[in-house]
């Protein structure tokens, strides 16, 4: 399994689309690594500086409908090559969510009230997450406080993360 722990990048907006995550002009790249410097390059979010704000981040916490738009798996790949293997949101666009699990990464949905709370308590300062995959719990913490939140993913998604992705799973089963 991929590592899921580390510093959190808070993106305080709904409907962040795949073109913002990785613009189409980079879809001609054939290596995933080439996407690395372009993650969130076109994000419309005030005071967001992609290069400075992304470095050292290992998880994203955001609002609803994250990853809407194109089917491009380049979006999860751009996160992956930046060391970000988990996105936590109120909701995801279907294809993006499936792409995350298909790559053995995590797209965790939490109720809006909990997302609000995480933003209120932790956004704007350095925060980290620790993920307990087997028990379905994640901890968000900074120097002063921490919050433990349970999460649920489907058994199928769980088996994809464990198998390291859908290709190996499907090849074994079908």
């Amino acid at each position: 399994m991929k590592p899921f722990n580390g510093q959190v990048l808070f993106l305080d907006r709904s409907d962040i689309n795949t073109d913002e995550i990785i613009p189409a002009r980079y879809l001609t790249e054939i290596s995933k690594e080439a996407l690395k410097p372009h993650l969130l390059e076109d994000l419309s979010l005030e005071e967001f500086d992609p290069r400075a704000d992304i470095s050292d981040k290992r998880a994203v916490i955001t609002r609803s409908n994250f990853g809407c738009g194109s089917s491009r798996e380049h979006a999860p790949w751009a996160l992956e090559v930046n060391g970000i293997h988990v996105v936590i949101a109120q909701s995801f666009a279907r294809i993006f969510r499936q792409n995350m699990f298909n790559c053995g990464m995590l797209a965790i949905e939490l109720p809006g009230t909990i997302i609000d709370q995480l933003f209120n308590r932790f956004a704007g300062r350095t925060a980290e997450i620790e993920l307990d995959f087997n028990n379905g719990r994640l901890k968000v913490k900074n120097q002063e406080q921490e919050e433990i939140v349970p999460f649920v993913i489907s058994d199928f998604d769980r088996s994809l993360v464990e198998a390291g992705g859908w290709v190996d799973f499907a090849d074994k089963h079908y």
């Binding site: 089917s71 491009r72 798996e73 294809i95 499936q98 792409n99 992705g165 859908w166 290709v167 090849d171």
Partner: peptide, 20 residues
């Protein structure tokens, strides 16, 4: 349905795809 590259890859290889 639109899918990502991994679903496409499995579709090409196995002729199946998973949906909710």
């Amino acid at each position: 349905a639109g899918v990502g590259t991994t679903d496409l890859e499995v579709g090409i290889l196995k002729g199946v795809c998973a949906f909710r």
